[in-house]
Amino acid sequence: MLLVLSQSNDLTTDKVLEWFLYYNYNNVLRINEKDFINIKEIHINNYNEVDFTLFIKNKRISLSQVNFFWYRRGHLHKKIKLANFSDNETQIQLKLFLDAEWSICRDFILNRLHDKNSLGNCFKTKVNKLENLERAKKSGLKIPNSIVSENYRMINKFLSCQACITKPISEVVNVMEFNRYIDLSTKEVRIEKKPLSNGLIFPSLLQNNIDKWIELRVFVVYDQIYAMAMFSQNNKKTKSDYRNYDNEKMNRGVPFILPEKIGNKLFQFMRESGLDTGSFDFIVTNQREYIFLEVNPAGNIEMLSESCNYYVEKKIAEIILKDTEHGQFIKEDYK
């Protein structure tokens, strides 16, 4: 059986599963993040191999049935109900305790699933941009010069040497203020003549603004690379971040062949980070240098697949099927 963990609104999962059905492989169970999960048993003893049995969406599933685990997105959640305690503090403490209890079971289950043939990794979805910059550099990739500081003078000094952008160190989140989202996407920054009133800012990430020729979105699944070049430099709205979409004049996104040299460094990076799939962002400078920006282990695949006519979803289905008991069937059809 193929087990998929995803979110109910993930179109990529929908499409890949359609291809499974097309190839006559029905032995698929898709768990969405909000699905109800019940542990029937987890056996850890002196006599047998570790096994567990879960009830998911009223279906019984044991570890031994799973031959492939595809982690796409989301997590295994448990609704934790607690009796009402008069003391609110007690309630909070107990809730924390139960959360911790569940998370150990959950991680154990997910780890055993990852021991099977698998694609994606739920323990690698939280990215640490700073770690990744360091790791990319060690893998031989070029990165933007970056500083994190809460010191006003340091930041101005950095800014005085180069044009800069700032972006979240973690991920962009949606924060509402007066019915509008606060824009937390990548922004250009300039030196402020007047220091902020108290001279203090929260630790912020600054990177030198790279003179870009094109941006790349590179999707990797195992050893296969699908790259798209995006021409966003002509468009003021998308100049510092292509995600500030311009709907009237959609940025050009076309198939791109990532030079082998860069591809090898990318694979090196993935080995170092324990990733078998991911979406990478690069900038190619006017001098044709390839600068690593960030990686998203569970990024958007659809846009790249459609713009470049790659049929990535079909390829993912074929790759997974090759690794399940269904492998023989697909071979004839696999081009």
């Binding site: 059905l21 070049a229 198939p255 062949i257 044709r288 049929y311």
Partner: peptide
């Protein structure tokens, strides 16, 4: 788009494949 001679090989033509599941 304008480019250098060395850039030409980076941009393949569209693969006009068509499939439905």
């Amino acid at each position: 788009f304008p480019c250098d001679q060395e850039d030409l090989e980076l941009f393949p033509e569209l693969d006009k494949q068509w499939h439905i599941p």
